[in-house]
C-alpha cells in the first residue's frame, strides 16, 4: 500500500467533526506536526468498530507535535513533544 507521507513531512491534522469510533482526539485537530514514522496499513477503526471489515485499510503514521503547538500556554520546556498515531485520511500536507 502506498504511503502519501514520509518521515519528516509536515502535516496538518484535519479539523473535522465526525461522530463515531474516531481515533483522532480533538486536541490535535487543526494542529501542525511532523511525520515521525510510518506505522503501516491497518483496518479502518471507524468502520471496524461497528462490525464491518475495516476495509480498505488505512495508512497509519506517528506524528510528532511540539507541545507549544498544541497548547498555547504550555509551560514546560519548548523541546517537549507529544507523539500520536494518526491515519492518513485525517491529515493534509502543511
Amino acid at each position: 500500500m502506498e504511503t502519501k507521507y514520509q518521515p519528516g513531512d509536515k502535516v496538518q491534522i484535519l479539523q473535522r467533526n465526525q461522530p463515531g469510533h474516531v481515533r483522532t482526539p480533538i486536541y490535535v485537530r487543526g494542529k501542525v506536526g511532523v511525520i515521525e514514522r510510518i506505522v503501516g496499513a491497518f483496518p479502518n477503526p471507524e468502520t471496524l468498530a461497528y462490525g464491518h471489515s475495516g476495509l480498505p485499510y488505512k495508512m497509519l503514521y506517528r506524528v510528532n507535535f511540539k507541545q507549544g503547538e498544541l497548547w498555547s500556554d504550555y509551560d514546560g520546556s519548548p523541546d517537549d513533544t507529544l507523539e500520536i498515531e494518526i491515519y492518513e485520511h485525517w491529515m493534509a500536507p502543511a
Binding site: 506505522v39 520546556s77 500520536i84
Partner: peptide, 15 residues
Amino acid sequence: PDNRQVRVHDSNADL
C-alpha cells in the same frame, strides 16, 4: 530538570 525533554506518547490507535 528543565533541559530533559519530555516526550508524551498518546496510545490512541494500533500501537
